[in-house]
């Protein structure tokens, strides 16, 4: 514990700005993964434990396409589309078979998939870690904003994430697909009574969720080392985020991501050896006070 350092940082403008921005950066990348997770839970009431593996797959696909085309843009695109397809296959042929059963059966299917994907990645891309490298466009000195340091690449990530959030929000609130999705989240049998194919809606949501995870993996690939099992820690953190924000609430996921980002950035100053513990403590406290999460609807 180092409360002196924490107080010092909280009273220094430059430290405050830098750590807040770093919290935001951590939070934004987390949000992309968590948004898909919470979307799938909100509609399908399924906790998708394979979400971390989707993220990993996105990063690896980006690595390969980047290597072939030398284009970061194409790499990210391939990651999003490729993972969306994998998510579709996974949902249609495996996950949809256990929608009716209890949560433990779904957990089992997901776990099997995590094991298989980790090994598949190891077989296809090899056991050693990989690094994708930064696109030339972002190899620029960082910007100084209000005394804080912001790398150009992270500024780009924040903007992209914000655009994606807005698009996601528009899809959910302004399109027919979004209306059906929202209706299906509340009452799936009503939706199917209206002649809408709920199976198709579920597949669509799962694909969208998977796409977001793949996108996050592709976007983050230049600043991550790629290894089999890399989805694991991101899975845990995005879980904390969705639980804190409220399972099923996308706005909650955004709030939760930023909170976790800030806990990380300031926690690493005040409690450098217990940052992980702090996140779980926050999760436990919020669950005790409001089990459905900050912005979740009471179940």
């Amino acid at each position: 514990m180092n409360l002196v350092a924490l107080t010092e940082c909280l009273t220094s403008a430059s430290c405050l700005v830098t750590q807040t921005t770093s919290g935001l950066i951590i939070g934004m990348l987390l949000f992309l993964v968590a948004a898909g997770l919470t979307l799938i839970f909100g509609v399908l009431k399924v906790v998708n434990f394979t979400h971390g593996s989707f993220y990993m797959l996105g990063a690896y696909l980006a690595l390969t396409v980047n290597g072939l085309t030398n284009s970061y843009f194409l790499a990210v695109l391939a990651a999003a589309i490729g993972v969306a397809l994998v998510a579709l296959v996974f949902e249609r042929f495996f996950m949809s078979k256990v929608y009716g059963s209890n949560v433990l059966m779904q957990l089992l299917v997901c776990y099997a998939f995590i094991l298989i994907m980790d090994d598949a990645v190891k077989i296809i891309w090899g056991p050693e870690f990989k690094s994708m490298g930064m696109a030339a466009a972002f190899q620029k000195p960082p910007l100084f904003i209000a005394g804080g340091i912001v790398p150009v690449f992270y500024l780009f990530l924040i903007i992209v994430t914000l655009i994606i959030s807005v698009v996601l929000w528009l899809i959910i609130t302004r399109t027919r697909f979004g209306t059906v999705v929202r209706a299906a989240a509340v009452n799936p049998s009503m939706v199917s009574a209206l002649g809408i194919n709920t199976g198709l809606v579920f597949s669509g949501v799962f694909m969208l969720g998977g796409m977001l995870a793949g996108l996050a993996g592709g976007l983050a690939a230049p600043v991550r080392s790629l290894t089999a099992g890399m989805g694991f820690s991101i899975l845990i953190e995005s879980f904390i985020v969705t639980v804190i924000g409220g399972m099923g609430s996308i706005a909650g996921a955004l709030l939760g991501s930023i909170m976790i980002g800030l806990v990380r950035s300031f926690g690493s100053i005040g409690f450098p050896l217990f940052v992980e513990g702090l996140m779980f403590l926050l999760m436990a406290i919020i669950l005790i006070l409001k089990p459905s999460g900050l912005l979740g609807k009471e179940g």
Binding site: V103, E276, G277, F280, M283, L287, I288, P291, G299
Partner: peptide, 24 residues
């Protein structure tokens, strides 16, 4: 006091708190 999946998550949170403590 928590129901369903929320009970599952809070037990997980407590376990991970213990885990973090053991590590730290």
């Amino acid at each position: 006091r928590l129901k369903d999946i929320y009970f599952s998550f809070i037990t997980l949170a407590f376990q991970m708190l213990l885990y973090s403590t053991v590590i730290a």
